[in-house]
Design a protein around this nucleic acid. Structure first.
Lengths: 120, 120
DNA sequence: CCATCATATGCCCATATCGGCATGCGTCAA
DNA sequence: TTGACGCATGCCGATATGGGCATATGATGG
């Protein structure tokens, strides 16, 4: 076995810097592959491949326009991601102060004992 | 060249399901490696490796407690992710009605044809 | 100092990915 | 129909990654 479940979900799709750039660009409206490739400084095949991934996870939709293929944003798939990450919101504020406090406390008095080995 | 910039950022760290689970578990407080491994049904080495990644991107902190190593959450690194994704918030609402409209339109125009076209 | 527990690492294998390149395929213009 | 254009794919090479396993390392209790 190797590399468990990876591809196929938004989390993975946006893990790629270039794909994030594509999504950002698409906020400006639909665009054909070539335009995306040019603006992001990548080759056309590359753009197509990234777009394919984005399409597979449903973050973009395509619309055939003659010989062009207009790609457009479909951000619905980002909502779950936003919510998941949002579940940590209070932690990057509150919880952190607590940790900082904790560290200070530790430095000042090393005899203190951790009381959070809750369960097992 | 192969595989451009990957590891080393929060986006990538949370692309792994198991690592997301670890983070969720850590919201409950610090925990030693073994406990995490057990609760998530993974081997100890695996847990250590994922924790290492999380540590490298700064999402968790370690604290040596005797022979144990207590891992704790440090969600600060998730904030940029939350903000980036949040930049698409208006799109998974507003912008989408437009697509829906488009789809409806499409269905009405050819409602007698199966045409399960869509992607690919 | 020694045995042991708790972790971290190294190594190997299988595979997923990304980039580059050439090519296949569909659409449109003449 | 032919040829150019726009894009999707297939294939190859390099590499990062994740899992499994054995073992090194650190700390603790005797």
């Amino acid at each position: 076995m190797a590399r468990a479940a990876t591809t196929s979900d938004a989390f993975n799709a946006i893990a790629e810097p270039q794909r994030r750039e594509i999504l950002v660009l698409l906020r400006g409206g639909e665009r054909p592959v070539t335009a995306l490739a040019r603006d992001l400084g990548m080759t056309q095949p590359q753009a197509s491949k990234h777009l394919r991934v984005l399409r597979e996870v449903g973050l973009v939709r395509v619309r055939g326009m003659g010989r062009q293929r207009l790609y457009g944003l479909d951000a619905r798939g980002l909502r779950p991601v936003h919510e998941w990450v949002g579940g940590f919101e209070r932690f990057w504020n509150e919880s952190f102060d607590r940790l900082d406090e904790y560290v200070q406390e530790l430095k000042q008095a090393r005899q203190e004992e951790p009381h959070d080995d809750d369960d097992q």
